[in-house]
Amino acid sequence: MLSGVARDILIAFLFLAVFATLPFVLDGRYYTGQIVTIFFYAVVASQWNLVFGVAGIFSLAQMALFAFGAYATAMLGFYLDWSVWAAMPLAGLTTVLVSILIGLACLRLTGAYVALLTLSIAQVVYFLIVTDTDCFVMEGVRCRQFTGGAVGFSQFGDLGTRKAFRGDWLTANYFIVLALLIVSMLFTYVIVKSPMGLAFRALRDNPGYAISRGIGRFKYQLLVFGLSAFFTGIAGGLWASHFRAIGPNLLSLSLMLFVLATMVVGGVGRFWGPLVGAILLVGADEVMREFGEYRTLGLGLILAVFVVAMPQGIVGLLKAGAACLRRRLKETAG
């Protein structure tokens, strides 16, 4: 059968072929918009997967980084009138800095401790934004807090697609976000297959051996923290530019849970996991819209059930199934 890389290229082409034609086939804007959200979740989850799945660091700060990128872009546009296209790269870079700061604070610890601290940091930031009440700027009679407070930001600019493409702006945005997905997944692929990726996996699977071979745990973990933050921050900025409004809900536990679930359901540490997971979860979410208020409850239960019953995720399950099939074929043939 196909070798690893060849198989991945084939899968990539299949996905791309489908994604490229979808906007022209789908009935109406709603579904196109939903696929765009799939792309966004897949980007963040794929970068989180680098930290969590490949390097084995239990960080829960990824959404905080995503939110930082979004807020940075929005605030640059709002306060300094920057175009989002200029703001996004800067947002990406500053998110890397923030991520390294968080890493410096938390990575001396291991395992569950990191989860606790990163979660606490994310919650504290959420808390600080939501309780921000000091007026920074006055807009007529309305008060705006520096961080936007509970209301958040809007009217800070956009991608310019409405002006350029008029009615087709959504399709244009679709392809822009798809481009981000392609670039970030390519980035992930290169890292995973590189010696660096090997080092990350070694630290995850056999830390003692890796350290004895000169792979400094702290240094490498900080590195993956920084690397994964770039596209996360840009994704945040792009989210802000696409939806044209952001708020502290980006830091909410339920959103973090959603993205975490895409990673877990897809398969932690698997390359195609985040994309598969995002597709499945947004799909499931669509179905659960029927149930209204039980949506979050259902989501929580799905996550719990998956972790218990299928910790290797869908992709892991598929791989195991394929291996089993291959063995059976060999047995009947041989």
Binding site: A112, G298, V307
Partner: peptide, 26 residues
């Protein structure tokens, strides 16, 4: 059910986060 898995420490956090949010919603 999860005790047998060597990744228990990690998995249980995810699972209990899921349960927590489900219960909060309840």
């Amino acid at each position: 059910f999860m005790l047998r898995n060597p990744a228990f420490e990690t998995n249980i956090i995810i699972a209990t986060v899921g349960i927590a949010i489900a219960l909060e919603n309840l």
